[in-house]
Design a binder for these strands. Structure first.
Length: 684
DNA sequence: GAGCACTGC
């Protein structure tokens, strides 16, 4: 295909080039451990813990409209229960079973596994549907795995989900915003369609509150319960939990100390340690490499591995390979290993007791990342990673008395993040009064009101709270956040919809610029990036990258390597842009190019992102136009090293030691007066 | 001078 065969894997500077696309998703089973792999499929199915509960499941689903199933990952519930229902006739009369997963990876791998067990081709009786990848047959598919966003989209077209006899919500304990929206909507649908059944599956969540939420039995009436709980006991080994006597001053060093002790004194078994971010993980690994030598343990050599989402796929896969003989894997991970992935062979868990979460800051109307103590449920989930193959040990880096002070559950995402997209979605689904919507856990009213205020300012909803036509109703159709979709829809008026659709696609992918860690190449990468940089800011810079990428599409991969651009990110941006173009055509938004007139593009960006405006205060820091909060230019911005412009718009805020603006565009204050008039006349 | 995890007909 192209000329990259001269690159050697040993050349560290090219390591980034190996990435997810090289992993064959069909044959990649490293993520899922199956100890019965040598048995025939039917035999494997019968050995799963859930098999003993087959009759219970089928009995309870007849009797109750909603069933809450609690069971650990690995008990087989996500693959088996849909098949039990299918085999018991729940797909007669052309009805389907819908299984809703929080991640694309789960939806596709589970569907493929179930298709194998049903001995059918994927996309026939068993299929899946995720964004950019439809693999199901509307007439033949009976068991359909999908992501949460897909079901929300289906509800917009078919509000009572008439195609389905059963909906299964999986991994509900993660409590994503979409999970909560779906639960609220399904509660309504269940009232209207008595024959629809709902199964809610969860690993740790508090099943009692879920049961109460779905129970339609009215107080003081003799009517029967409509919801029930089934607990599936998986096979777990006992876990011994250790606490420290006194709080540790620095949990990174604490984790390192603890790992060294385990490695020196404990028998074989891999170690999994939780920290909050990649920076901490890299720091811990440096310390460990200094302190652990081949001689630290007579029998086992340490094999120290990082694990976090931004890590290249080739690096992530190392964590799943079986531990070589006479070695001990020591994995230092973010929260990704708490729920999203399962690593086999863990016997020791070290928990720093903290997690990094998105948190809505109402002063600046933005989500920020904060490090907070974990919840009890989260601590238990982390601990549970130790007892999968034999009795395990867990080390918590806080005193035992602190455990009781932890909150029981991590607040659902809805209660702690920006709600503007969720509110817009609900409005489109016919929920006019979002303040009275039955959320599984109502988010703070202030956050809902701020979301409504923002949507009104960008004219997605009118003063009475109804979706505007055509702007608001069209915005919902795009898989973009409200400010982004507003920008896109107004882009044809500014004569630059081609450029804006590119920029918005580029904003949705991360790590466009490759940053090698070693000296010479990091300077080269810096020089290459300069070639794309322009004084208008980061967004026009991204536009330049994409335009150059498309011009070189016949040798895209080698072009990316040459210019230190992330090929995978650009390919995904291309994919997202094509989806946007299709939607734009459908909603009659003409594709117009401004042929290099950057001012048009910047004015258009202002028309959508005006709520995120800042000005340069005489003290030398930027302040938000409404709240007057201090913000700083992120070092990754092209504007970091130039004279500070007077007015800026940002697309994203990162809260670390300061509040940093990312993806910045230079604007004029007169544009704000013109394009964000309604919003700013109150503020100024 | 810096980066939780997911996701979208």
């Amino acid at each position: 295909m192209n000329n990259i065969k001269f690159l050697k894997p040993v050349n560290e500077d090219c390591a980034w080039e190996v990435d997810r696309q090289d992993v064959d998703p069909v044959n990649n089973t490293t993520f899922i451990y199956n100890k019965n792999i040598s048995l025939p499929l039917d035999e494997q199915r019968k050995r799963l813990p859930v098999y003993k509960y087959k009759k219970h499941v089928l009995f309870l689903i007849e009797k109750f409209q909603t069933m809450i199933i609690a069971g650990d990952t690995g008990c087989g519930k996500s693959t088996q229960i849909p098949q039990y229902l299918f085999e018991a006739g729940w797909c007669q009369n052309n009805l389907k079973i819908g299984v809703v997963e929080p991640r694309r990876f789960c939806a596709t791998t589970l569907a493929r596994r179930v298709a194998d067990e049903q001995r059918c081709e994927i996309g026939t009786t068993v299929g899946y549907s995720i964004r950019f990848d439809n693999c199901h047959d509307p007439n033949a598919t009976k068991i359909k795995y999908m992501t949460e966003g897909i079901l929300v989209r289906e509800m917009m077209a078919d509000p009572l989900l008439c195609e389905y006899s059963v909906i299964i919500l999986d991994e509900v304990h993660e409590r994503n915003t979409l999970t909560d929206i779906l639960m609220g909507l399904l509660k309504k649908i269940l009232r209207k369609r008595k024959r629809l059944k709902l199964i809610v599956m969860s690993a740790t969540a508090d099943v009692v509150s879920l049961k109460n939420f779905f129970n339609n039995k009215r107080e003081n009436l003799k009517s029967e319960n409509t919801a029930t709980v089934l607990c599936i006991e998986g096979k777990v080994y006992p876990i011994m939990i250790h606490y420290v006597n006194d709080p540790v001053p620095d949990y990174v060093t604490g984790v390192v100390d603890c790992i060294c002790n385990i490695h020196k004194n404990e028998l074989d078994g891999d170690i999994l340690a939780f920290l909050t971010g990649s920076e901490e993980i890299d720091r811990a690994i440096l310390q460990l490499k200094e302190r652990l030598t081949e001689n630290s343990n007579k029998y086992l050599s340490p094999m120290i591995l990082p694990m976090y989402g931004a890590l290249p796929n080739s690096e992530q896969l190392k964590v799943f390979r079986p531990t070589p003989k006479n070695m001990r894997k020591i994995i230092i991970s973010t929260n990704i290993a708490e729920t999203s992935i399962t690593i086999f062979g863990i016997v020791y868990v070290v928990d720093c007791g903290f997690v990094k979460l998105r948190w809505f800051n109402s002063k600046i109307y933005a989500d920020t990342l904060v490090v907070v103590p974990v919840s009890q449920a989260s601590a238990e989930q982390r601990a549970g990673r130790a007892g999968r193959i034999k009795p395990g040990k867990v080390y918590r880096l806080y005193p035992e008395r602190e455990f009781e002070n932890l909150t029981l559950f991590t607040p659902p995402e809805m209660s702690r993040t920006d709600l503007s997209a969720a509110v817009l979605q609900l409005k489109a689904l016919g929920i006019d009064n979002v303040l009275r919507f039955t959320f599984p856990l109502p988010p703070p009213a202030e956050n809902l009101l701020l979301a409504l205020e923002l949507l009104n300012a960008i004219e997605a909803i009118d003063d009475k709270g109804y979706l505007t036509k055509p702007l608001g109703t069209t915005m919902v159709e795009f898989p973009l956040s409200p400010l982004h979709s507003k920008t896109l829809i107004s882009s044809s008026e500014f004569g630059c919809s081609d450029e804006i659709s590119t920029i918005l696609a580029m904003l949705q992918v991360d790590n466009v610029f490759v940053k090698p860690s070693s000296g010479a190449n990091s300077i080269k990468a810096r020089i290459e990036k300069r070639k794309f940089e322009v004084e208008e800011g980061d967004l026009i810079t991204l536009l330049n990258v994409f335009t150059a990428f498309e011009k070189n599409s016949n040798n895209a991969k080698s072009w990316c390597i040459q210019h230190f651009i992330n090929f995978k990110a650009l390919r995904r941006a291309h994919e997202i842009k094509s989806q946007m173009l299709k939607l734009m055509e459908r909603f009659n938004i003409p594709l117009i190019s401004c042929d290099g007139n950057a001012e048009n593009v910047c004015r258009c960006i202002t028309s959508g992102f005006f709520p995120n405006a800042v000005y340069l205060h005489y003290s030398g820091v930027y302040k938000t136009v409404r709240g007057g909060e201090d913000l700083y230019i992120h070092p990754s911005s092209v504007l970091y090293n130039v004279a500070q412009p007077q007015w800026l718009l940002y697309c994203e805020l990162i809260h670390t030691n300061k509040l940093y603006m990312r993806d910045i565009t230079v604007i004029k204050s007169s544009w704000l007066e013109e394009l964000g008039k309604k919003f700013y006349h109150k503020a100024t």
